[in-house]
Design a protein around this nucleic acid. Structure first.
Length: 289
DNA sequence: CACTTGACCTGTCCGC
DNA sequence: TGCGGACAGGTCAAGT
């Protein structure tokens, strides 16, 4: 799923919805999705309150008053959807929205709060996970130790951005920008969108990219991600926010999933190719190899 | 180390 | 309609 803008959208939604809630429990029938034992849940979740909802890269962190946190990765098809008591029990909601259908066959973890609301972790492909662990240990996870800087941080500069790529000089720019240890949070959608914005072909070797091009890529990546957050993220397929609603960034996409359509800048037909093992969308006129 | 590829899963879509 | 294969927003563990 979910790249930085989608995870950030979920984070903002959950912050409004669950901070201060009193946890009653959590259940899962999919060990891979939630490896913790019932004993862990009893000791560190039941009776706790939610104190904060944070994000690092594409990882969500739900902090509890026990100094434990839920560390959550949505991977490709994960969803975190909150359902309040009214939607759970109200017969007066005859619409077909997702919240009225939960849990469903993709529900892997169900968390319950004292006010009869629930938080569902759904994940069709089971790549994602929820892990309960001490808050203080999160930043020692191997992923957290190697992940790069947050691209939307106010302190993050174009020069820092460019320098992060030095290590990956011999690969193509698409593989490098998808590398979470270079910059955090970039996935397939925003890689293609930002490279189109910066007029850089995804197959270009990192070592061939000029300082001016890196500067433009930095600007475009931030612009595209900020716009997506404003639009509630991209709902290409499965993604929904904490209220089960889709985001509209795909309506504003310039190349992603637009193969066969005209480039918004020059009118040339957009092509789809394979770069770094991922479906990749380019304007063959604007983005020259 | 840096780099590439396959694996992890389920579902959908497309061509025969 | 059925069936096989490719593909899907992400990371890892293996290979070279």
């Amino acid at each position: 799923m979910p790249e930085l803008p989608e995870v950030e959208t979920v984070r903002r939604g959950l912050s409004e919805l669950i901070i201060g809630k009193h946890v009653l429990g959590a259940t899962s029938d999919t060990l891979k999705s939630f490896p913790n034992t019932d004993t862990d849940v009893q000791q560190f979740m039941v009776g706790a309150t939610v104190t904060a909802v944070r994000r690092r890269a594409k990882v969500l962190l739900i902090d509890l008053s026990t100094d434990y946190s839920l560390v959550i990765h949505l991977k490709m098809t994960g969803q975190l959807v909150y359902v309040d008591a009214k939607n759970r029990f109200g017969a007066g909601h005859p619409n077909d929205s997702l919240v009225n259908a939960l849990p469903d066959k993709s529900t892997r973890v169900t968390m319950s709060f004292k006010d009869d609301s629930q938080l569902f972790f759904n994940d069709q492909r089971k790549f994602g996970w929820v892990k309960l662990m001490p808050t203080a240990e999160i930043m020692n996870l191997p992923f957290m130790l190697k992940v790069g800087p947050e691209p939307l941080d106010v302190t993050f500069t174009a020069q820092q951005f460019r320098e992060r790529f030095a290590r990956r000089a011999r690969t193509n720019i698409k593989a490098a920008i998808l590398d979470q240890s270079v910059v955090a949070g970039v996935g397939n959608i925003y890689a293609d969108e930002s490279l189109w914005g910066a007029l850089i072909h995804p197959k270009r070797l990192v070592g061939s990219i000029t300082d001016a091009e890196f500067e433009l890529l930095y600007t475009q990546l931030r612009a595209v991600m900020n716009l997506s957050i404003e639009k509630g993220g991209s709902s290409n397929r499965n993604y929904v926010n904490a209220e089960g609603k889709r985001g509209s960034y795909m309506d504003f996409a310039n190349v992603f999933r637009r193969e066969g359509l005209p480039c918004p800048r020059c009118g040339t037909t957009i092509e789809k190719l394979r770069v770094a093992g991922r479906g990749t969308h380019v304007c063959p006129f604007c983005q020259v190899v």
